[in-house]
Simulated assay, not measured.
Amino acid sequence: MSKIYYTKPSIGELERAYVNDAVANGWGEQCYAYIQRFEREFAARLGVAHAVATSSCTGALHLGLRALDIGPGDEVILADMNWIASAAPVCYVGAQAVLVDVLPDSWCLDPAAVARAITPRTKAIIAVHLYGNLAALAELRALATAHGLALIEDAAEALGSRYQGRGAGAWGDLAVFSFHGTKLMTTGEGGMLVTNSTALRTRVEQLNNHGRAAGELRQFWPAELGHKYKMSNIQAALGCAQLERLDELLARKRAIFAYYARALLPVIDGAQMNPEPPDTLNSYWMPTLMLPEDCPGARDTVLHSLAEAGVDARLVFQPLSRTPVFAATPQASNPQAAGLALRGLNLPSYHELTEAEQDRVIAAVLQGLKR
């Protein structure tokens, strides 16, 4: 019985052709050609003015926070139910990550919790779009505007999701994306920062070039201490090909989710999966099953059943406030994040997943619930 992995990329002939071209010809004067093309085409696809390719989404977020001049003494609000990559860059710049609770349906930032957490030291809100689900963008945008805060979208998991016709990442002062091998589209490792602000784009590019200012005639003269979170031309070639296939990749993710939802939700009373509220389109990057609240311990028995069936699944993100990283930083109690962490698991969703394989996953889930 072959193993069913929870995710893997979809790589075809177009990707191989572009990468081979970059390997053969992407040097000398062409060493940035695919990078520049990828940035230009990604920005156009999202409907934003600027895009800067990076080596990771984490690096993009670090650059964005520095470009916003966020540093020691500042506070940045984000959801407690998150992966560390969304919070770590806040610590990198010396600011304090303020972890607040999430909504019970989207599992993303609760705007009411954000409002309660705002202080004179607050400089930004990071809205992480979890598993393709969109954060409450209208409410968070209004809060940020009213309090003079930056709204940052961490859209690492939500490329292709849309709200009121605009893509995730097009609502914030800046947004970041991931192209890790698990994501909807991949460059192996890699990320992108997008913004409509020319000033922010210029600052990010300077920071990402070891702090060298554009137009500086002294070639090796850093104006400030910067970083090097650059994407390679070969990675960008892969990204250009994946971007051309984005509609196909998105449609397949949505079909996989729909198959799970039709099979599981009618027979597991009280279960939830990724929501798609009015005016939204969910990319369903990671189909996620939240088991009923009245089934304590069910998640672990389901995970065990899946493992026995040769199915690779994973836990949802655990509250960051409970990890050793934040042990010394007092945080508010966040009951929704704590409760969801005990009930949720991500189901396999790679693009080549067959209906027969999904049936194996579904059967293992239901078998686990019978124990």
Rank of each mutant, 00 (worst) to 15 (best):
I4D: 06
I4L: 06
Y5I: 09
T7I: 13
I11A: 01
G12C: 07
L14T: 07
L14R: 07
R16M: 05
A17T: 05
A17M: 04
Y18V: 00
V19H: 01
V19M: 10
V19Y: 02
N20R: 13
N20A: 15
N20K: 12
D21P: 00
A22S: 11
V23A: 02
V23I: 14
A24K: 11
G26T: 07
W27D: 06
W27T: 15
G28H: 08
G28S: 13
G28W: 09
E29R: 13
E29D: 14
Q30N: 15
C31I: 08
C31F: 09
Y32Q: 12
A33L: 12
I35R: 14
I35A: 01
I35Y: 00
I35F: 00
I35T: 11
R37E: 15
R37G: 06
F38E: 06
F38M: 13
R40C: 13
F42V: 13
A43F: 10
L46K: 04
A49F: 02
A51E: 14
V52K: 03
V52A: 13
A53K: 04
S55K: 03
S56Y: 09
C57R: 10
G59W: 06
A60M: 08
L61E: 08
H62S: 09
H62E: 13
L63P: 05
G64H: 07
L65K: 00
R66P: 01
A67S: 13
L68I: 06
L68G: 02
D69F: 02
I70L: 11
D74V: 00
I77S: 04
L78K: 03
A79D: 02
M81C: 11
M81S: 10
N82I: 03
